[in-house]
Write a protein that binds this DNA or RNA. Structure first.
Lengths: 180, 180
DNA sequence: TCGATATTTCAGAAAAGCCTGAAAGTTCGA
DNA sequence: TCGAACTTTCAGGCTTTTCTGAAATATCGA
């Protein structure tokens, strides 16, 4: 049991620091890692104690994770308490992350790129021409990423990438290793 | 000419703020955007004036961009000056970004995930079991991303994704739009 | 090797972003 | 509707990250 707690602590810490690479605040990533390590849904109080953070931070982290679709809130009948449960279907989790990032990053970028290209097309001179060509290449790339994301969000990409197969196979492997 | 400068300013600003989503400091992203907007390689002094940042910041941004393989430094014979040129082949740029992120993020994560899974496999109890299964699913996913990245780094992915075709087509489109 | 011209480094300032904690808001049973 | 239990909000403090500017270092021609 001590080892499980050790692994949990290390996992929470690493996951939290990795969040930085993905624009996710440390506390938010830590809460997600913590929930992933729990077999049962947890109340806010358990998270506060387990991670040593404030009540407010837990609430904000939970809200953000809900926005990302990575955590579900369950309300217990006969109580005012909310229980938080991590989304463990990674296919769903990734789909939600892709959707959110697409909306936050690519969609606005794409719109502005197109406007700028139009504007530069009206200019004369080698400088404007070169600049416009480069923006055009970026636009094409982002546009491609955008349609790949669309395709993935529709579920068409999953089979191509073999995601389901791999994840399922990992689950089997894990079960086998653990023994009876 | 005024419009070109306007577009440049807006592009630099947006690119700089978008950098945050990718773990790239604003000043670094701004320098890259600036260089993309210039037809010719630029000296440090031009960047300092164009972006209104300090000499030291330009030097640090240039170093980081070089690490990412996004900027090349050219030394002019008969002078001590360094000229900075943006990598405009997006295939190369993305390859470099993927390689760097893989090394910084996935490789360490994968190693630790495997160690944790081993450790949890020795534990008994439903809690450890569930936790281990979830880590196993994450490991499978990261492992898949890792091998996709490897495949992309070897160049095999480019055709599959049609990247080259799309980028080239965008260039043609851009040229057509601009007229003679 | 020297001096002139550039670049790089880095300690400290500035900015940005995150978390805390208390107050306000919400929900539920009675 | 009321009070208790719980959650959410947000201004302010704090940590982390980023930028500045001057000193140190490097490079080139002579």
């Amino acid at each position: 049991m001590g080892r499980t707690a050790d692994v949990r602590r290390d996992f929470v810490e690493l996951w939290g620091s990795l969040g930085g690479y993905w624009g996710i605040p440390p506390a938010t990533a830590r809460v997600y890692a913590w929930l992933l390590s729990q077999a049962e849904p947890c109340g806010a109080e358990a998270i506060v104690e387990g991670l040593g953070m404030s009540r407010g931070a837990v609430s904000m982290a939970a809200r953000e994770l809900r926005d990302w679709g990575l955590v579900h809130v369950e309300r217990v009948p006969g109580s005012r308490q909310a229980l938080y449960r991590a989304e463990t279907d990674l296919e769903v989790a990734i789909r939600n992350i892709v959707r959110t990032r697409k909306r936050r990053e690519w969609d606005p970028l794409l719109a502005r790129l197109r406007a700028w290209i139009e504007e530069l097309a009206r200019e004369r001179g080698a400088e404007a021409e070169t600049f416009r060509e480069r923006l055009g290449a970026i636009e094409a790339l982002v546009g491609m990423a955008d349609s790949m994301a669309d395709s993935f969000l529709k579920g068409g990409m999953v089979q191509k990438l073999g995601l389901k197969v791999l994840v399922a196979s990992a689950r089997r492997q894990g079960r086998r290793r653990s023994g009876p």
